[in-house]
Design a protein around this nucleic acid. Structure first.
Lengths: 128, 128
DNA sequence: TCATATAGGGATAAGTTTTTCCCCTATTGC
DNA sequence: GCAATAGGGGAAAAACTTATCCCTATATGA
């Protein structure tokens, strides 16, 4: 497992939420768990672009940060279910605010993001 | 300048906001610009843990994403001022929601974050 | 004359995250 | 025996981000 070499700074509130929410897929994991997708394989199907490995890692971090709990059923093949903790549930309105802002500005966001990427010289398959 | 090798996926709203908000210091930059700290040197003083270089890069990305504008005064020594665009201003309530959540849960957040870091085996100077 | 302030950028190194590949468990069904 | 299923983890490579160092330019003040 990777060991940090630099101590994160935890001065202000925004540092703290950054620590628990950074990670490419964490917000989506919380969101989908909240929507009722509890099993790792379900979550992987909902987030197919993420590697299986990374979802496991980020789920474990969410668990260490007490935002989700993991319940293991002693059956074969194994069954695992994640749920939001009470603490984790308090984050849902915040994530909803993020999602709502994105939805309200979706067109513009796509434009500015694509303009930047295309201008940079990556081949972007223009889907229309 | 760095060229991406992987095309980001922009499927859902959460992908979009991630594109413009990811970056270690971007949220804080937006916040401080909103509070009236406009000049690069002021922002660097407000965020001393960030390198000068990275702040420049992230400010430029915020500009490309149309969240801030940059005004250059043709004087010597140079003077530059950043301001939020109207689009950028719409993000402030969202950032405020993040900050408010962090503040409400500050103690708990510090605990779970420190527990994880200390448990991992980095030397953390225990400040009390 | 020399340091300081101001804004910025290139090159490279270091750090961190994510992906990819392969392996392990145990059971059911063919 | 072999494949499929479900969950997981180690190792290494690739991708990405951030830090460090050094450079530009001009004006002011010690």
């Amino acid at each position: 497992m990777y060991e940090r070499k630099i101590i994160p700074n935890l001065n202000c509130g925004l540092d703290l939420i950054g620590e628990v929410l950074y990670g490419k897929w964490k917000i989506r994991l919380l969101w989908f768990i909240n929507e009722g997708y509890k099993r790792p394989s379900e979550l992987q199907r909902k987030i197919p672009d993420a590697s299986r490995r990374v979802l496991n890692i980020q789920l474990k971090e969410l668990e260490e940060h007490e935002l989700v709990t993991r319940k293991i059923y002693p059956v074969v093949p194994p069954k695992v279910e994640y749920s939001l903790t009470e603490f984790g549930k308090t984050l849902i309105p915040v994530i909803a605010a993020l999602g709502q802002w994105s939805d309200e500005h979706e067109t513009r966001l796509r434009n500015v993001i694509l303009k930047q990427i295309v201008g940079s010289d990556l081949d972007v398959p223009l889907i229309n």
